[in-house]
């Protein structure tokens, strides 16, 4: 599955990473090399093999429904780029 420049632009948009026209060519070249490496997988017959998401065959532990967190807004917002009245500020969201 060969990549092209449109793919680069599409995935860069999905990933919200600006890629300039000049960077796009270089990115295409490097990513194509990596995909070439990945393509080796296609030679393997994996029919009937259950995908492995976790190395241990264990199930989810559940947490008791008890409040354990306290308000740390001031501390958390001390490292925020922009806040006002306790809100994180971003450029206007259009719905």
């Amino acid at each position: 599955m060969a990549l092209n420049l449109d793919d680069i632009k599409r995935i860069a948009m999905l990933a919200r990473i600006e890629v300039s026209e000049s960077e796009a060519q270089e990115t295409l070249h490097k990513l194509s090399g990596i995909l070439g490496l990945i393509e080796q997988m296609q030679a393997v017959d994996t029919t009937g093999i259950t995908p492995m998401s976790h190395s241990q065959d264990v199930t989810q532990r559940l947490r008791e429904d008890v409040v354990t967190k306290t308000n740390q807004r001031e501390l958390f917002q001390s490292i925020a780029p922009a806040t006002q009245d306790g809100l994180y500020l971003v450029p206007k969201v259009i719905e």
């Binding site: 680069i8 599409r10 860069a12 990513l31 994996t46 093999i49």
Partner: peptide, 24 residues
């Protein structure tokens, strides 16, 4: 970008799922 690509619509099975199978 590679990660976004292999998860994107139409490629998930060929890449991500396949990789998880070979992982096993």
């Amino acid at each position: 970008l590679i990660g976004t690509y292999v998860l994107s619509a139409g490629y998930y099975d060929a890449y991500y799922l396949k990789a998880q199978q070979i992982r096993r």
